[in-house]
Design a protein around this nucleic acid. Structure first.
Lengths: 151, 151
DNA sequence: TATTGTTATACTCTATAACTATA
DNA sequence: TATAGTTATAGAGTATAACAATA
């Protein structure tokens, strides 16, 4: 092990706290009609437009057959629609429907409300500190999303 | 809707970022022998000592029969052991084994290493900001854990 | 041949309903 | 009766392996 410089202090602790925070928020999410998997797919479709099964599977870090099943359930529920890719007869393009967007929005509002309630109880100084950390958290999310799917 | 005071600014945005961070970290977690559910139970047992099925179910926000099944799988894998509660013949006490602790530790190290790798790429200013936010994040986790299980 | 996607099969995780055993 | 837990059953979500269709 090398020496620990000023930049190194507590980085392991930071990773640990971030992991615990994620688990904590996850456990705290109220139950909803949309599962996490379903919401994840709808969220990608909403942000990036229609996608192929393979692209969705890579993006969500699941296998192609798993994504086939998930999309089939979403289609049966009317939350996505499918069309054959005009440029490639093998591929299909999955798109979110208006009903899908509505469900997704509702799920986000419910979860955010829960988190908001906790923030309301937080010490004002802590709240200010977290506000100041928003850009850094955004950057961390970007890095995490970029480097995903490498497992 | 009431007026928006100085303390109110951006709290909705903060909740949103925290939710997105949690999802992002979750998707980023490398696959592991221990599922999230299994790791959650082992983590509780490690921190709080032997627990009843009912207590574990409440803590992890699942139903009693779901926890029965999960504990049965963990027991079959040698990660927990069970004894009848000496004070109540109906109840059993579930305890983590040495093998369970080892698996849990390994899973945490793997995930933390992934997060750590992202932190290494973060701008030093962002990293400093996040370090300063550790106590606030800790407090938020505590609030979230305390108020869980109210759905 | 390589790529896109589906089907077949199996295991984990979750739920509700009905049950057993103990208090 | 009430509580602690299990069993029965069903559905979502995941995986691997084998297959079909198109490029």
């Amino acid at each position: 092990m090398g020496e620990i410089g000023p930049r190194e202090i507590g980085r392991g602790e930071l990773a640990e706290i971030l992991r615990e925070l994620a688990l904590s928020m996850l456990r705290d999410a109220p139950p909803h009609r949309l599962s996490r998997s379903a919401a994840g797919v709808l969220s990608v479709l909403e942000r990036t437009g229609p996608q192929r099964i393979t692209a969705l599977a890579e993006r969500e870090a699941v296998r192609q057959p798993s994504m086939t099943g998930l999309v089939q359930r979403l289609e049966a529920a009317g939350l996505v629609s499918r069309t054959t890719d005009p440029e490639d007869g093998r591929a299909s393009l999955v798109a979110i429907t208006a009903a899908g967007s509505a469900e997704l929005g509702e799920r986000r509002r419910v979860h955010d409300r829960t988190i908001h309630a906790h923030l309301d109880e937080l010490d004002p100084d802590d709240l200010l500190t977290l506000h100041r950390a928003v850009p850094a958290l955004r950057h961390l999310i970007e890095l995490t999303e970029t480097h995903a799917h490498q497992h």
